[in-house]
């Protein structure tokens, strides 16, 4: 019984991680929005410096080996560019406008997952993409 519960808990651990991730990433966006009169790239610099040190500390504490792969160079650059563009849009717009558009990156990831990782596709997914397009139009249009 205990083993069954443990298995069940382990199976749904991703839900806990997602809640944690959502709260902390939202807090981060909110904090960045409060940084006044400075280049978004400088904000990204300080953010990266802090995060990198902490991720190193977490990996050390949890005894996780840091293994390099050349693909991570591309990952680092695409992440840097996407975050900088997002912070530029945050600087010249409202948090409640820019964040939802940026957040639709989850749709892009889902589509790429379906195409290249052979994840399932159905009518709901197509419906979701149409709703996403409407959402972007409404949040991006003039008031």
């Amino acid at each position: 019984m205990f083993l069954f519960n443990k298995k069940l808990i382990m199976k749904s651990m991703w839900k806990f991680y997602i809640i944690l991730s959502t709260i902390f990433l939202a807090l981060s966006s909110f904090t960045v929005k409060n940084v006044k009169k400075s280049s978004p790239l400088v904000v990204v610099f300080w953010q990266f410096l802090m995060s990198m040190s902490l991720v190193f500390a977490y990996s050390f504490m949890l005894d996780q080996k840091l293994i390099f792969n050349p693909m991570m160079i591309i990952l680092g650059l695409t992440y840097l560019i996407s975050l900088s563009l997002y912070y530029y849009s945050l600087k010249i717009s409202d948090l409640s406008k820019a964040a939802p558009v940026f957040n639709l990156s989850s749709t892009v990831s889902a589509i790429l997952g379906i195409i290249f990782l052979s994840e399932q596709i159905n009518a709901k997914i197509v419906g979701g993409i149409i709703f996403a397009a409407f959402g972007i139009y409404l949040l991006g249009g003039k008031k």
Binding site: Q64, I67, N103, S106
Partner: peptide, 27 residues
């Protein structure tokens, strides 16, 4: 800016998923 960021971020997360099959998230 937000749309470009969205596409790049979406692609980055997809690439992260492909990397996680043979590496840990911390690396």
């Amino acid at each position: 800016y937000a749309l470009m960021a969205m596409f790049l971020q979406g692609t980055t997360i997809f690439l992260v998923k492909t990397q996680l099959s043979n590496n840990n998230p911390y690396s």
